[in-house]
Amino acid sequence: MVSDFMPAMSAEEFFVAAARKHLSAGRKSLSLPRSLDLAAQVLAVDLGLKPAVLYDSNAACAEQVQQYLSSLQSAQLVSKSLLTLDLNGNVVIVNPLAVRSNLEQLFGDSRVAVIDVRHSLDQPAVLSTLEGEVKRTAQDLLLVLRDLEQLKGAEKPQYVAEKSEEWNLCTVFGLLLGYPATYWFDQTKSHENCLAMTPLLVTTAWAIWQAGATSHRFCLYSFSIPAALLQELQTNLGHWRMCLRDGFERQHVLKDLEICQNTVTLPSMCL
């Protein structure tokens, strides 16, 4: 696969060339900054610093994302354990072991919280127990991931359409992407939520990928929780922060982790 590109290509150049070759939408290919962002995110997933990355750079399909990932795996830039999932047209590159570990925390020590933001509520609330749709979704996702762990270097994306049609993808993405808290609402009744004009504490983690001569700063994580629930979720946030810092200390690919927080209030919130 390396021979598809220039023979003496640096890792940075290979990542960019692979993105431009495989991830074009129409006649438009990914820009250099977006190509570097995606490369850094995929490396973070491979390192276990985050369980998955949602591909949203352009309208490239699951097959294109799989071709991109396969080229990186063939060049031994990332491990063959990474897989491409298609959830009803939403494409995710996952580290199955890391995602399963995150899901098991949901059932085990409650280090991952689920926030109920149904439109009928006066204000968001943390679910005290996993029940109903949330529990079934998490269990289904766990079963899917256990099956996927047997795959190595898959050449095709894995489609999870049948089960994912019933999932609340907002909740699922929070679990897949490794957030310490994820939102849930009863989508059988309404897709609206109670977060309008609710102060939200946004946590953002930044890091630097030293890609050759380029020092590329990128957003590793960005998620929110209602500010009013900060005290209740402080343990979850603290554990997430500690695990991320510990993970950074065990690798040498990414550096200069910076975690910051700010509060925003929006007239509406689309999940």
Rank of each mutant, 00 (worst) to 15 (best):
D86T: 04
W240H: 11
E13D: 14
R100D: 11
H191R: 15
L143V: 15
N168G: 07
T263V: 15
E63N: 12
V99R: 02
Q105N: 12
L54S: 09
T188E: 13
F185L: 14
R118K: 13
Y183E: 07
Q67V: 04
L87M: 10
G48K: 04
D116K: 10
A60K: 06
V16I: 15
L237H: 05
H252Q: 13
E232I: 10
C243V: 11
S222T: 13
K156I: 00
S3P: 08
L85M: 09
I115P: 03
A59C: 04
T265Y: 08
Y55L: 08
F5W: 02
E249L: 12
L47M: 10
N168I: 05
G26Y: 08
V202G: 08
S190P: 04
K163S: 10
W240G: 00
L143F: 11
V144F: 11
L127H: 11
C170N: 14
L271Q: 06
R146I: 12
P267Q: 06
E249M: 11
N58A: 06
N262Q: 15
Q251I: 10
L142C: 06
T137S: 11
A138Q: 05
L87I: 08
A228E: 06
R118W: 05
I259A: 03
N88M: 14
Q234S: 14
C219T: 15
M9A: 12
D109G: 11
L32C: 01
Q150D: 12
L142G: 06
M269V: 15
T137R: 05
A154L: 06
P157A: 05
A44F: 04
D46I: 01
T137M: 12
R217F: 05
V2Y: 05
K135H: 09
A154K: 08
A211I: 03
G132N: 14
E166T: 10
K80R: 15
S110L: 12
Q66L: 02
L254G: 00
N236Y: 01
L69W: 04
C219Y: 01
G238A: 14
S268Q: 12
L266W: 06
A138G: 02
S35Y: 00
L233D: 03
T182N: 10
H191N: 14
R118D: 15
L85Y: 11
A59G: 10
A205H: 00
K163I: 07
F107P: 05
I93W: 02
G178D: 06
V92W: 01
C270K: 11
F5H: 03
D86A: 04
V99I: 07
L266A: 14
R27M: 07
P51Q: 05
Y221M: 08
N168T: 06
D116C: 09
I115H: 08
M1I: 11
S164H: 02
A161T: 14
K163Q: 12
A196D: 13
P51F: 02
D186K: 12
Q261Y: 02
E149C: 03
T137W: 09
D46L: 01
N193F: 06
N95M: 04
E155T: 14
Y179L: 06
T214F: 09
A60E: 03
V126F: 08
L49R: 04
R34W: 04
S215C: 05
M6N: 13
